[in-house]
Amino acid sequence: MSSTQVSSTPVQVAAPSNTLTTSIGRKVFMAITGFLLFGWLVGHMIGNLQIFLGQDKLNAYALTLKHLASVIWIVRIVMLAVISIHVFYGITLWLRNRASRPVKYVKEATVQATLASRTMIWTGLGLFLFIVYHLLHYTFIVTNPQYADLHDSLGRHDVYSMVILGFQNYLISIVYIVAMFCLSYHLSHALASFLQTLGWNKTEVQPLIKKIGYTVATLMFLGFSSIPIAVLLGIVTLPGGGH
């Protein structure tokens, strides 16, 4: 006890450590992997939105991707690595952050931290679970194996019908829409955060950056959710007897 306050000398100055293990280093990895995931999502969304162009366009797009199988697998492996790092660091950082305040305040308060920023771990974990389901649902067609047998008139896998059939189920649509809300909420903090972590921030432009972040996050939500909503509202319908 007596030595707690008398700072004994010489001070054990911590050795500058590996980037991967420093707090800022981990954050940078979070930022970069997060941004890659975001970039991938933008591509994914643009691809998906082709559903509004009709069955032919979407199925053709799907077939093109299929022909690029080797590239797709590389991308998939990279994205798997990226998402693993993002999730792993996300969880370890969160655990460390919790450990940094072993005794909580009796009276908690928040001045300006957004709810989005405080729920990143939950929206993130929610998204992670969703991604697992999503892959099983549409990519690997495990949950609904009947989708595998859908083919259009040209004999292509009928992705268009698969999507519509999927979203005609209210429950599935709601899961997707909720997940996309999580995504957008996650992004609403993530985008400004990305710039801040990599060192691009000025007080004068901060509000603008935040606004752009919110806008992009909202657009992502609208883009992704427009599909189940369109299906549910009957805007996008199954092709007449097309299977």
Partner: peptide, 13 residues
């Protein structure tokens, strides 16, 4: 200098 060990600091004393 404290970091170097050349000064020994006694706060709250």
């Amino acid at each position: 200098q404290i970091g170097k060990g050349q000064v020994k600091m006694f706060p709250r004393s």
